[in-house]
Every structure is written in structure tokens, then in C-alpha cells.
Amino acid sequence: RNLITVASPVDMHQSGLTGKFLSVVYKPAQSISSMLNVSLLDMPAKMFHVPGWVSSVAFKLTNPIGSVINSYEKFLNLWDREYLEESLTMSKWFDDMVDYPGETIKDMAVHMMINNRIASGAMRIGQAKAQFNKIACSILAFAGESDNIVSVKAAHKILDIVSSTDKEFCIAPGGHAGVFAGASAPAHTWALSADWLVERSDKR
């Protein structure tokens, strides 16, 4: 009945420098793949496996200053148990990220990043084909104000490819993870989501 997306990378070619690079290499990559009859999808999945610690380091490098500030704020709030519980929970999530399976990364690299299939409105997943214009439910989409991974434009694209008439877009404080798990998330992303859902829930 209702759908909420949070910092979802719908248009990968609109995400900062990485997006510009992907949009530039898209056509050459297609030509080379066609001429040589090769594809990244033919390569062994183990070559694309990303260990959890690599993801953890990559996330932290997107905002190195923020990591330092976060440690400093913990020191300043040693007396605040609630603050420390929230902050340490978030830190643990960043420190103990799970591995990304190679097959998943391979599909993401080809279909989502290089070919930008979601932004085109349809993407094949296994033997099935997802067609986003068949989505007609109420939709609320969020983007992170300082997200270095998924830009505001990339997240906003979801509203262009669905058939929904009741749709809303919000920019929330924080980076890619901060939008849903940062200190401001409860008062922004989740409070707005709760109010939005209440208005669209069955009152019976």
C-alpha cells in the first residue's frame, strides 16, 4: 500500500564524480563488450567479493573528518548514557559490516552502475523483469543532505519512474548512513515517515 525509500541509488549516473565517470564509460563499455563478446557477468563471482572490513573503511573514508568528530563527541558526552548507547551502536555497525557477496556486487556493477537499469525504469533480476512503472502505491523518498554516495538527484529519480500519483520527496540531515541511523534520524527521517504512514493507514 505504501512505499518508503531511504537514500536509494536509483540513478547511479547522477551520483557525483562516480556518476559522471559511469555515464562516460557506459557507451565504450557497451561497445567493447559487444565487439569482444565478453561481459563482467561472465567473470568468476569470487573476483568481486568485498570483505566487510573493506566496506567499513570505504564508508569511513567518505567522511574522515566526521569520524574524528564522532570520537571527540563521544569523549565530550561520556556522562550521557543514552547518547553513548546510540553512538556506540552506530560505530559498531560501521566497524562490523558484513561481506558483500561477489555475485551481488557483479550484478550491481553491471546492471545498476554501468548500465543504470533502474533509472531506465526496468531491470532484470534473475529470470524476472522488474518494471517500476507498475508501482502505483503512495511513495515517500528520502535523500541525505550530505550523502557522498547517493546524491539528491540519484535518490529523487524514483519519483520519475513509478506511476504513483501520491508521491513526496524529502531531504534529511546526514550522509548515506546518517539519514536512517544518525543522531538526527529519529527526529527527521523516522518522525516524518511515521506521520506520513499514519495519514495513509487504514483507520478501521
Rank of each mutant, 00 (worst) to 15 (best):
Asp96Cys: 13
Ser71Thr: 09
Val54Ser: 03
Tyr100Val: 13
Ile149Asp: 12
Gly126Asn: 05
Thr189Asp: 00
Ala155Phe: 08
Leu36Ile: 03
Ala177Cys: 11
Ser151Tyr: 09
Ile158Asp: 03
Gly66Pro: 13
Gly175Asp: 15
Lys27Glu: 13
Cys137Tyr: 13
Gly144Gln: 06
Met123Gln: 07
Val68Glu: 11
Ala181Glu: 03
Thr189Trp: 06
Val24Gly: 00
Lys157Asp: 03
His176Asp: 02
Thr189Gly: 03
Ala155His: 08
Met123Leu: 06
Asp99Thr: 02
Ala122Arg: 09
Ala183Gln: 13
Pro101Ser: 02
Gly126Gln: 10
Asn115Pro: 00
Leu88Thr: 02
Lys203Gln: 15
Cys137Asp: 14
Val110Ala: 11
Leu197Tyr: 12
Ser31Leu: 15
Glu82Tyr: 03
Lys106Gln: 15
Leu76Gln: 12
Ser120Cys: 01
Lys167Cys: 08
Gly174Gln: 13
Leu22Val: 00
Asp202Cys: 00
Arg1Gly: 05
Val24Thr: 00
Gly16Trp: 07
Thr189Met: 07
Ala185Arg: 15
Thr89Arg: 14
Val68Ala: 12
Met97Thr: 09
Lys60Phe: 07
Gly126Tyr: 12
Asp80Glu: 12
Val68Tyr: 11
Asp147Thr: 06
His188Glu: 15
Gly16Tyr: 04
Trp196Ile: 05
Ala181Arg: 06
Ile149Trp: 09
Ala130Trp: 14
Phe94Arg: 15
Thr165Ser: 14
Pro101Ile: 07
Tyr83Ile: 02
Gly182Asn: 07
Ala29Asn: 03
Lys134Pro: 01
Ser8Thr: 14
Ser34Pro: 00
Phe48Arg: 07
Met112Thr: 01
Gly16Arg: 01
Ser201His: 08
Ala29Lys: 01
Phe75Val: 11
Ser15Val: 01
Leu140Trp: 07
Gly174Leu: 12
Ala128His: 04
